[in-house]
Design a binder for these strands. Sequence first.
DNA 1: CCACGACCAATTGTTGACAGTTGGCAGTAC
DNA 2: GTACTGCCAACTGTCAACAATTGGTCGTGG
Lengths: 245, 245
Amino acid sequence: MSASDPVRDAPLDNRTLREQVFDHLREEILSSRLEPGTELSEVALARSLGISRGPLREALGQLTAAGLVTIVPRRGAVVTRLTRQEFIDAYQVREALESLALRLAVPRLSVAEKAELHAMCEAMEREAAAGNTTRFFEINRDFHSLFVHASGNRKLEAVHAQLIAQMGRLMSKSAELRGGLQQSAAEHRAILEAIDAGDAELAARLLEEHIEVPQRVLHQPSARSIFEDQDDTDQPPDEEWRADG
Amino acid sequence: MSASDPVRDAPLDNRTLREQVFDHLREEILSSRLEPGTELSEVALARSLGISRGPLREALGQLTAAGLVTIVPRRGAVVTRLTRQEFIDAYQVREALESLALRLAVPRLSVAEKAELHAMCEAMEREAAAGNTTRFFEINRDFHSLFVHASGNRKLEAVHAQLIAQMGRLMSKSAELRGGLQQSAAEHRAILEAIDAGDAELAARLLEEHIEVPQRVLHQPSARSIFEDQDDTDQPPDEEWRADG
DNA sequence: CCACGACCAATTGTTGACAGTTGGCAGTAC
DNA sequence: GTACTGCCAACTGTCAACAATTGGTCGTGG
């Protein structure tokens, strides 16, 4: 049971370079250590990782399919940069997915899971009061992921996870624009009370309103700041060189 | 402007081998020329395609991320085989996505798009009467895809397309089990009438019922036949070797 | 007859080198 | 000064060979 337990270390060593690189880059992108728009040179990246270009290319290809990287066929790979419209679109899809998840999850939640939701809710209120946005959004993400997982629908969970990953760091940034952490925490509290009451319909409706808040804010010009140097006035409508459907 | 117009042929030649192989295999899988469970040997496939293993591996990796292929790290790649439960799960997600799509699309549909929906609806009724299931489901797929596209939500369209691809050929197979083609066509007609009336809420509700029909059938033991030699009694709950999120 | 261990063929993982294309830059003509 | 043409460096795309791991099989010992 030591830290060098072979039954735990062996599978790590067994992991393919492609998998390691995929997870590594995925984490780098999600933590925004690699900012959107960053060009990913194969030779430079492979050298810095100490591997050859083969596994790296495969990892980049999978990241492309996951929507985190955009490959332009003979130009190279860049960290995907979301348009304001794409981000709003993703929010809408996320709302539909989580609404379904909550409806499914409410009758299935165990007491342990409910207790965990309560703990998260209190932690969010605590972090909101302390003004710790980073920690707040970590818990927020876990809160939403928990009932998506508890829905029992694996496909739903997979699609949701992929979408959340694509929305990436912009999610927490956009949420900073909303009414404030305290209000967000209160909304979670209201949802949780509906869950405790077993009212899936009410919980789902509250959730939809909860998710719609940042959506509305995103339409305002003040939201332009989080998209940084990004041109969202007009994008070429028929450019279909992105991932794949 | 002939068929050998260089401005149209050049970009085709410019396509990467990885892209060509990806599209090819994707088509092979979607058309069920490659059945689920088929083992994809790298050397054999590369030889039969007349290419080296490099681009093929990249294509297989992207197909894995798209959910059409499952790679077991040192064992090889196989065409993904959906569990009965996974298929039911996917149906549920599809329902939520298309319901949202329809709500968004109804106020946005152009007269041309409505006309196209009408044409599809009539074509479905025609094919249903003729008992041409294959053609029926092609039109059926286009019908649903049209208003998903008309929703104007690109992300929704992308997620939906990916999900439809994953459900693949099982979708048409499962639909054969439902009440019958005529009933399905009638349901489309009812949805279309709600669309024409501009009642997005009613259309979405009818759509949800429409999609729920095969879901209910799938729970019945008679649906077992479409899953062929597949063991759906119990699957290992903690096996996480699948694609990614 | 069964269990255990070493070998082996087959397949995947990884690498380095080669080939082709792209975009930029210098040079020239107008 | 501007536009065009030809080169060039850097990068990605592709290939074939090498290395490592897997699962099976044969042989041996109990």
